[in-house]
Amino acid sequence: MRVRMIDVRKSFGQNEVVKNLSLDIADGEFLVLLGESGCGKTTALRMVAGLETVSGGTIEIGDQDVTNVLPKYRNVAMVFQSYALYPHMTVAKNIGYPLKLRGTPAAELDAAVRAAAEKVHLEDLLHRYPRQLSGGQRQRVALARAMVRTPSAFLMDEPLSNLDAKLRIAMRVELKRLQSELGVTTIYVTHDQVEAMTLAHRVAVMDEGVLQQVAPPKEIYDDPANLFVARFIGAPAMNIVKGTVEDGTFAVPDGAVSLGSIAARGDVYLGFRPEDATLAPADEAMLRARIYSTEMTGNETIVTCEMNGEQVVVRADKDYEGTLDAAVGIDLDPGKARLFDCDNGRRIRR
């Protein structure tokens, strides 16, 4: 179902943790709320769930105002970071609990539990207790419990962050597949940008309670709305170099990049991704720098250069060999470089 947050605010005493958040999440959409810890993303999710009261604004689920409705009437399903499995109930009881609360007849309940368990490959573990399960299995029980009924929305609060790296990638794939099969609107909170990029239809980036940008992953990556998003997304992160724009050229003490027609202005930030730059001989390139360190990761070499006291990262071929402190030049694709205002961090569109 469609979920809308209109101008939602939340304060704890003097501390406003969510500021005028407006989001319109379409039916069946997978929206990821991305941000660092303490940015208000979990609070936003909990307001949709009804676990937090709202200080201002409206929350709608399927065209119905649920701002002051108790969680149990909202018919949302939530997966917690800790999974929140009831330790005194078997897996089957855990999964069936939401249906039991709705007074579902026993036969129907059993069938639903079995179906949900099969979706996450738990059918052999139904009689175990949570303490007898591994981390991954527990996480699948939590998913099954969310899926056992047809909720208006799935709410997931960092559901994969307690798993080890390998399992997390496997569950990510599984989760994406399940969501598109079920077609239930999903709001997913995470601080892991890889999770956000891989899972989401749209990513909503938040910082200090303020929504920074909502866009599909590709757009977030290619077309960041401001400096925060640019810096936050991508690993290694986008390079940001401070300089001035004159005569259609971005100039720094150690070089210049011609950008074509652009109005002259004072200080700006130029951002470019490590993969949009190439290393070249020092005297021919747009920017001049020194090699600070090189890291061979297997399929490529990450070269960190130092330029006028700032670090700039470039992705090079895996066979690249540079000596430390050697002078090196950096060429970049002007079409993929992004300019940001020095004062408020906003994108400067050309």
Binding site: A49, P71, K72, A84, L101, L155
Partner: peptide, 23 residues
């Protein structure tokens, strides 16, 4: 008792009294 358990039950549709007695 972890708060998550009670919140989870609340979202699953349990009332306060029910949470108290069953969880």
């Amino acid at each position: 008792i972890p708060l998550d358990l009670e919140e989870s039950a609340q979202i699953d549709g349990a009332s306060r009294l029910r949470i108290f007695f069953t969880i």
